[in-house]
Design a protein around this nucleic acid. Structure first.
Lengths: 226, 226
DNA sequence: CAGGATCCACGTGTGGATCCTA
DNA sequence: TAGGATCCACACGTGGATCCTG
């Protein structure tokens, strides 16, 4: 394995992407950070995305924050997934921002579907109270939803977007959705973004994001590694 | 409706049983207790089975505590089910005692299967902190497991009984089993009953029972009352 | 502002314990 | 001791809040 620093070219194929992931499987994030000449923080309190961005760099994901999959040419989205020592996901997984002034369009036009069609799940094994550097990179899983999973994701998305489109944002609860939920996605609870109410009038509300529930990502990992 | 006291003859048919159940649907347990000339306790702390036994009396279930369905001629087991005001089961449901020195025999010979083949679920609507007399009798549901439900119950039973038969009782956790679990069923944690260990030697352990998880009975009621 | 995510207080669920009757 | 069940402390899950980077 060659030690490289700085940015890296995008992988040319699924195979190359999987090889890059396999090359660091078993390593700690501190080891990967050293290879990339990046500092390892003592905690994630003020840098929650550190692990994900470290692996984006290593794997050669497109820089920047664009509403597209991380590897546009491959149609693959990268998601790191904090798991406990038994391999069970510990947190929900952010998918994308909810468009609160949505253009017309169905599930198959949605950003959620675009991003979830093919995902490279990269477990980060996180022991209790362990610092970020001690997290270990697990075996990557290149996943696409089964027909059943896609059906339920679509149902969830349609149920939620129906309310968004009707301006019923205040009637959306994080408890809705079997696999997919809508939760706040903002700097803080005072942040505001443009939306509209049920009368069609412009208004301002807390920005929201789509998230996958832990129960769903647990199912995905169990299904493949059990 | 005739007011009757004391014991009642067993119902001669499913239809008669369902009619007796329908006759008290909507009533409070205090009203039923008055009809049966039974005292209503102020709480259930020292009489947890009061509601169940009241309805056994009203419906004409066989007296006594025998390891058979409550209506042997009809092959029907009666289960009262405490539910919240939204109709969601609040507690697990006791099925029967676990035989800790089991005779050989499969799922279809088991007491669990015998009792669960046909169950009359009788919801008892229980508002928060409401006394026993204020519980209201709901609409009865005569249920038999679907093929899928029966499959999972069988899987659970086989997984659990394999451990019991191997004397691995101490390795059984209440967390095992998707629908069916094994939990203590005793006067207290010092109670002991005969069993044997993994070396085949006689020993004494806490008596256990089979229980249905609330998630399962919620599924049953939802499926029928949607 | 979109994407990279985690933090943590608090409500819900339930595993273990328990009680009465026949 | 089998059957009728419920009680309740506490672990666990998660909904709402939050933080950094490009």
């Amino acid at each position: 394995m060659t030690l490289e620093t700085g940015h890296r070219s995008a992988p040319a194929s699924e195979q190359e992407l999987l090889q890059r992931a396999a090359a660091v499987a078993g390593q700690s994030l501190a080891e990967l950070a050293a290879m990339l000449a990046v500092q390892t923080p003592a905690d994630l309190d003020h840098n929650k995305g550190w692990g994900g961005q470290l692996l984006e760099t290593w794997l050669g994901a497109s820089a920047g924050s664009q509403p597209t999959p991380d590897f546009p040419e491959l149609g693959i989205e990268l998601k790191t997934l904090p798991v406990d020592t038994a391999g069970r996901p510990l947190e929900s997984t952010y998918v994308c921002t909810v468009d609160l002034q949505p253009a017309p369009g169905g599930w198959h036009d949605s950003l959620v579907w675009l991003k979830l069609q093919k995902v490279l799940w990269l477990p980060l094994v996180t022991a209790k109270n362990a610092p970020p550097g001690e997290r270990r990179i697990g075996s990557a899983l290149l996943w696409s939803p089964t027909a059943e999973q896609a059906d339920i994701l679509q149902q969830d998305w349609e149920e939620l977007m129906e309310l968004v489109s009707a301006g019923e944002l205040e009637h959306i609860s994080s408890r809705q959705g079997q696999y997919l939920q809508i939760r706040p996605k903002a700097a803080n609870s005072r942040a505001l973004t443009r939306s509209f109410d049920s009368d069609g009038n412009a208004s301002l509300t807390l920005p929201r994001g789509f998230y996958l529930r832990p129960a769903f990502t647990r199912q995905i990992l169990q299904h493949h590694f059990h």
